Simulated scan of single mutants.
Amino acid sequence: MGDHKEHQPLRVGAAVRRRRRALELTLAAVAERSGLSVPFLSQIENDKARPSRSSLEKVADALRTTAVELLAAADPACSVDLVRADGTEPDFERRVRSLVRGHHQLHASEYTGDHDEGREFQHRNDELMYVADGAVEVEAEGRAYRLGRGDTLYLTGGVRHRWRATVPDTRIIVVAVAEHIEAVQDRSR
């Protein structure tokens, strides 16, 4: 595969624990479903034990997911990742550049110029918009906000919004809590 992160052991424990808690299952319930012992499952969750592929598959089955998903949601052990301004070619169709690589708790993108202003966004979790250059008009919950360079708009999870650049070469940074994170209690309950 040649993945440069191979030397970093993935900490799958936190992903297993998040998934188990999301399903409101006890370790005992997972042990019963997977055929693995409670102490072993506890060690997996605390990253004291590294499960074999077959053990991880048993855990994944018990949590109604897959080993691949659990590994994707795993945290690389203490990583620092630098994304250079010129390091990635932006997608010039949409002129958007991701500022965070991989599967993390935060997602961030830089938008340059305009994008499909008719598109309405609604994120599950909180989001921050920062105008690095230019000007933007944001419509959120029926109100219009005009943002200039250096202005910041914070939108809590669930707020419907759309935005458009009002001057050429506008650059905005959007940072959001990733969709897979259970950051907010489900308000619909």
Score class of each variant (00 low, 15 high):
residue 162 R to E: 10
residue 118 G to P: 10
residue 134 G to F: 02
residue 139 E to D: 13
residue 133 D to H: 15
residue 116 D to F: 13
residue 163 W to C: 03
residue 139 E to M: 09
residue 151 D to R: 06
residue 118 G to L: 12
residue 128 L to R: 01
residue 141 E to S: 15
residue 155 L to I: 04
residue 134 G to Q: 03
residue 170 T to Y: 02
residue 144 A to C: 13
residue 135 A to Q: 11
residue 118 G to E: 15
residue 151 D to H: 10
residue 116 D to E: 15
residue 160 R to V: 10
residue 156 T to K: 14
residue 132 A to W: 03
residue 137 E to A: 13
residue 144 A to I: 14
residue 153 L to C: 09
residue 145 Y to A: 04
residue 163 W to S: 14
residue 145 Y to T: 08
residue 141 E to F: 00
residue 124 R to K: 14
residue 145 Y to V: 06
residue 166 T to L: 06
residue 129 M to D: 02
residue 123 H to F: 12
residue 133 D to M: 11
residue 148 G to C: 07
residue 124 R to M: 09
residue 133 D to T: 12
residue 153 L to W: 04
residue 138 V to T: 11
residue 122 Q to G: 08
residue 168 P to G: 06
residue 141 E to L: 09
residue 115 H to N: 10
residue 120 E to R: 08
residue 140 A to Y: 01
residue 170 T to V: 01
residue 125 N to Q: 10
residue 114 D to Q: 13
residue 157 G to S: 11
residue 134 G to S: 09
residue 129 M to Y: 08
residue 133 D to V: 08
residue 128 L to I: 12
residue 138 V to E: 12
residue 134 G to A: 07
residue 125 N to M: 06
residue 138 V to L: 12
residue 134 G to K: 01
residue 141 E to C: 05
residue 123 H to G: 07
residue 134 G to V: 03
residue 155 L to F: 04
residue 160 R to C: 06
residue 114 D to H: 11
residue 154 Y to A: 11
residue 124 R to P: 02
residue 167 V to I: 12
residue 143 R to G: 03
residue 128 L to H: 04
residue 143 R to F: 08
residue 142 G to Y: 00
residue 141 E to Y: 01
residue 158 G to W: 09
residue 147 L to K: 01
residue 149 R to I: 04
residue 153 L to Q: 08
residue 115 H to R: 11
residue 125 N to A: 03
residue 119 R to P: 06
residue 142 G to W: 01
residue 164 R to L: 06
residue 134 G to T: 03
residue 162 R to S: 11
residue 164 R to F: 05
residue 125 N to L: 05
residue 161 H to A: 04
residue 147 L to D: 00
residue 136 V to D: 02
residue 151 D to S: 14
residue 119 R to K: 14
residue 127 E to C: 09
residue 168 P to S: 07
residue 144 A to S: 15
residue 146 R to P: 10
residue 137 E to Q: 15
residue 146 R to S: 15
residue 115 H to E: 13
residue 115 H to P: 00
residue 136 V to W: 02
residue 168 P to D: 11
residue 132 A to S: 13
residue 124 R to L: 13
residue 144 A to H: 14
residue 117 E to M: 09
residue 149 R to W: 00
residue 162 R to P: 07
residue 128 L to M: 12
residue 138 V to S: 11
residue 169 D to S: 13
residue 169 D to M: 07
residue 146 R to W: 10
residue 114 D to T: 14
residue 135 A to K: 06
residue 147 L to V: 09
residue 152 T to Y: 00
residue 165 A to W: 05
residue 141 E to R: 12
residue 121 F to V: 04
residue 170 T to N: 06
residue 163 W to Y: 15
residue 148 G to F: 04
residue 127 E to M: 05
residue 130 Y to Q: 08
residue 133 D to Q: 15
residue 148 G to T: 14
residue 130 Y to P: 05
residue 166 T to F: 03
residue 145 Y to L: 09
residue 170 T to F: 01
residue 142 G to S: 04
residue 126 D to C: 01
residue 132 A to I: 03
residue 120 E to N: 02
residue 115 H to A: 12
residue 169 D to L: 07
residue 146 R to M: 12
residue 128 L to P: 01
residue 135 A to N: 06
residue 163 W to P: 02
residue 128 L to T: 10
residue 139 E to K: 05
residue 151 D to P: 06
residue 166 T to Y: 04
residue 122 Q to R: 15
residue 166 T to K: 04
residue 130 Y to N: 07
residue 131 V to G: 01
residue 129 M to N: 02
residue 168 P to L: 00
